[in-house]
Design a binder for these strands. Structure first.
Lengths: 342, 342
DNA sequence: CACACTTTTGCAAACGCTTGCAAATAGCAT
DNA sequence: ATGCTATTTGCAAGCGTTTGCAAAAGTGTG
């Protein structure tokens, strides 16, 4: 195109620093990357020059040469659901402390060729990968054969080979249901999540367990399948409300579907919580924004992100660690959407 | 560490493809990057081999060698406000079509050393940058001296040197206010945004203009400064409601502060919209989730992201284009939070 | 002061790719 | 065939780093 001007602004390289300080570029490299054996005085001089010159490493060159790029990848389905946003926030914060950068990948890109996609992520720039994706199994093999560091968030790998951080789904669902029961509810509807996902199953189990504990019969009619999204929550709630004996309370497997359910409830002219109670799961930021404020089970989403980062960084340090599984505690957050039965 | 095993899974390189097809690596490179003059049959053979071998380019090497990395950077304050999420979605979608990847940067990282931060972004990997940041001026100089391609979203550069995409803020605010006026409201409160930001000012101007058009006096008491965040919206609304002659309607400069205002209103036992109307700006996804559903001015956030990407890609193609400024239309979305005055 | 270490430093090669330049090949008119 | 031009290809250098290996400086010891 236009070759009269430099394609790119001339970068400050380790060569420049070397020239400035009179040491060799390898020495500069050593102080700038890890800390090998270099005399303290030299190190200071180099560091000072680097700062003065405004040096910033070229991540590509680093990674090419076999070093770390200081970049990790985050693979998510999309940014549009609050849930991911919170996790991402935690990730970003923790990454910042370690001076890592973030590459964001979304799954909707590939449609059936995930392994190529994942390969392209693992290849090259990123030092590790955090996956916050449902239905993760397809990706995993590729990652494992490459021995590429990754951690799963809120997802479980049946093979147990993966590092994962999740929350006490069973427990949380148990508590939510128990809370409803203690408020006097006996007919409690459940809107499930995508049942292929472990957390959805665990929440269903928790719900059943609570019923059992309190000697309430399990009525299949009262559980309708959802998919963690709002529209389906709406439909699911509609089904529940149209039952001959509709529930007096609904437990939605996540907040988004609870919102959908609230809408369906209101449309029928019912009041929340006077006529029907509703409880969600996740505690995304919107939960306290809706009216009435949603009672829900809080997952420490940002903390999950932070923990994931720490695990990943550890893993990058030492790829041969045995896989860890960290489970963070959920917590019942009582707000305004539930009420003792009249 | 452990040097007995390869640090990284051996990658498929252009050399492998060259070997496979019997052409030289430069030829392979040529077909794989741009399309220089290469015989069609050769191109096909190379492409086929690349696919078969599962080749994926090493972005770092590319960028190092002076080519494009096919990565663009996105600089945002954070992911936690719905607004950004929508823009990011548009960006991601459009990027996907062009096979670009996304690096995500957040501003909270730097505190006072933004120029180094920006340099480190511009340096190396990314081919261009999209900024969705308030108070952008600090960054701009660095970017400009580097002649680094960037575009501003929903932000304006007073110098007019920048490519920017935004929305009709003045117009939108005018229409929102006019809508309230036509509903019979005469005392209309305004919760502003951060006034250092152009869009906040434009919205204020639009509000004033509408009042003027309808011969309603501007009462300074009725405009209170906000910052686009929910808590401040709450406070601002409180001030408004405590006025001797409180407004009968409130125009919040964005949805988030409208949510805060709604909370304040409800806390005082007032009903929306029966006792007081409220209108927002942005139409983030939550707007239709809250109760009552928020009437608001829609910014086509995802489209703004998409347009920004297209502009940026153009700009990367030809950095010497004159700066463009694209303004997308806003649209009044009538929902349930406004009502004609009693 | 020589000797054997130990700590620091420097050189060179390599990482995967792009690209200027020159060489090879093809196409076509003589 | 012979030249000439237009199209295609290959070679080599270089992008900014890291790192193995060897050389250079220090440190102690006898």
């Amino acid at each position: 195109m236009n070759k009269s001007m430099p394609r790119k602004y001339r970068q400050v390289t380790i060569m420049d620093i070397a020239r400035e300080t009179g040491v060799s570029y390898s020495t500069v490299s050593r102080v700038l990357s890890g800390f090998e054996f270099v005399k303290d005085e030299t190190r200071q001089r180099v560091l000072e020059a680097a700062r003065r010159l405004g040096y910033v490493a070229h991540a590509g060159a680093r990674s090419l040469a076999g070093g770390k790029a200081n970049i990790i990848g985050l693979l998510v389905p999309g940014l549009d659901n609050g849930y991911i946003g919170e996790v991402a926030r935690g990730i970003d914060e923790e990454l910042a402390r370690a001076s890592y950068d973030l590459m964001l990948y979304t799954t909707h890109r590939q449609r059936g060729k995930e392994s190529v996609y994942v390969r392209s992520i693992a290849n090259g720039l990123t030092d590790g990968l955090i996956l916050v994706v449902p239905l993760v199994t397809d990706y995993l093999r590729e990652l494992q054969v490459q021995r590429f560091p990754y951690v799963l968030v809120d997802q479980s790998d049946p093979s147990g080979q993966s590092n994962v951080v999740d929350a006490t789904n069973w427990q949380g669902a148990y508590e939510a249901t128990e809370y409803l029961i203690k408020l006097g509810h006996r007919r409690i509807g459940l809107i499930t999540g995508m049942m292929q996902i472990a957390s959805a199953q665990e929440r269903l189990e928790g719900y059943r367990a609570a019923l059992t504990s309190y000697n309430i019969g399990f009525d299949p009619e009262l559980v309708v399948q959802g998919d963690f999204w709002e529209p389906t929550g709406y439909q699911a709630a509609s089904i529940l409300l149209d039952l001959e004996h509709p529930p007096t309370a609904i437990f939605a497997s996540n907040d988004l579907s609870a919102f959908g359910a609230m809408e369906a409830i209101r449309e029928r002219g019912l009041r929340i919580p006077a006529d029907i109670s509703i409880i969600g799961f996740d505690d995304i930021p919107q939960a306290s924004l809706v009216y009435p404020k949603l009672t829900t089970v809080r997952q420490p989403l940002d903390e999950m992100g932070r923990v994931a980062v720490r695990m990943l960084l550890d893993l990058i340090e030492d790829p041969d660690q045995p896989a860890r599984h960290v489970t963070l505690a959920t917590q019942l957050i009582v707000r305004d959407s539930c009420q003792a039965i009249g």
